[in-house]
Amino acid sequence: MDIRGKVFKYGDEVNTDVILPGRWCHLYKPEDLKLHCMEDLDSHFAESVKDGDIIVGGNNFGCGSSREVAPLAIKSCGVSAIIAKSFARIFYRNCINIGLPIFESPEAVDGISNGDEVSIDMAKGEITNNSTGGIFKFVPFPEFMRDILSRGGIRDYVLDKLKETSA
């Protein structure tokens, strides 16, 4: 799975309230969520993001609420990946579970600017900034999570487990 897109870059502590404000937490369908994504951080994001684009953030990306509609809103906009210096725990789990690729790489974040074009090679574990030529490593996923991501989310893992226990 290769990823390539234009970067929307933000700072530290991008919390789930600004990704999807509480006032929209009674939405859960992708077509509704995408209209309000990043609303309180970047009011132009939802109208300008294109399929395949990449979000880059600083430390503790996705902190705050457990609302899965936050990563779902990002995925609904067509975003192909998030690169950050670090991720909050529940957000990290939610992304793996819904099959939204996320990458931890402080070096890449420092070496990428807003608007750059970036590609990610999952197999090589590399992030390339095509606008500057910079190449960065990302922290590899544990095998267990790589398996979930490669299957597009946790669904098959759970359904296989169910079959095992009922067999």
Binding site: S66, R67, E68, I90, R93, N94, N97, I98, V158
Partner: peptide, 8 residues
């Protein structure tokens, strides 16, 4: 946790 973990 999020809603998918609850589903599982």
């Amino acid at each position: 946790v999020g809603s998918t973990d609850i589903a599982a």
